[in-house]
Amino acid sequence: MKIMVPIKRVVDYNVKIRVKADGTGVDLNNVKMSMNPFDEIAVEEAIRLKEAGSATEIVAVSIGPQQAQETIRTALAMGADRGILIKTDTDAEPLTVAKLLKALCAEEKPGLVILGKQAIDNDCNQTGQMLAALLQWPQGTFASKLALSSGKLAVTREVDGGLQTVELNLPAIVTTDLRLNEPRYASLPNIMKAKKKPIDEKTPEALGIDTAPRLKTLKVVEPPKRQSGVKVKTVGELVDKLRNEVGII
């Protein structure tokens, strides 16, 4: 079975981001970029399935600018076998990404696509679900555990009330939650090997997908500074404040 892992290049989670002075977006100049952490979990899970003998090949796919190739190299250094870069300089929206991935699935025919549940830059949490809908494949989102046996994939999902397990026929879509695994860091020999692994380049045009944005960003603003709180001495005082000052009970 082939596993496809779409990965996104995003601002590193350690970076304290700043809104551009003109309010059109986040300032990305000289900012460290990394693989979306949920996608690292997806790559790790794919590698574990391969190590367990359940998968034969892992293809890491990124949609983005030329530099997204570096993010693919990171996945290759972790253990993915080859990469595909769909090169675009427009910031692809979830639906565009889902369409591009659908087109790629038609070529690659993976048995499983593992995505991060969301990307930490825009927190959309849409791509996996949209891809499942477009392909009409079953989906197991917010996965905290995967178990593959006799052609069926059991996905334990983190839902509001606790854990839910669904059983999917393959091919299927999985999106990863934080607790699925702890991603490995690349060893030096694997970083060296990654240099020699192939990365194909494609364009959205060649796949027949229009990447023009459907959404328009009106304004980006910093969240308001948190006001300092007050300390109360007794439960009675707390209840009184909530009732009479805040008015929420």
Partner: peptide
């Protein structure tokens, strides 16, 4: 990119 991965890893 390789030097960056060395540092990250």
């Amino acid at each position: 990119a390789e030097q960056q991965s060395i540092r990250d890893s």
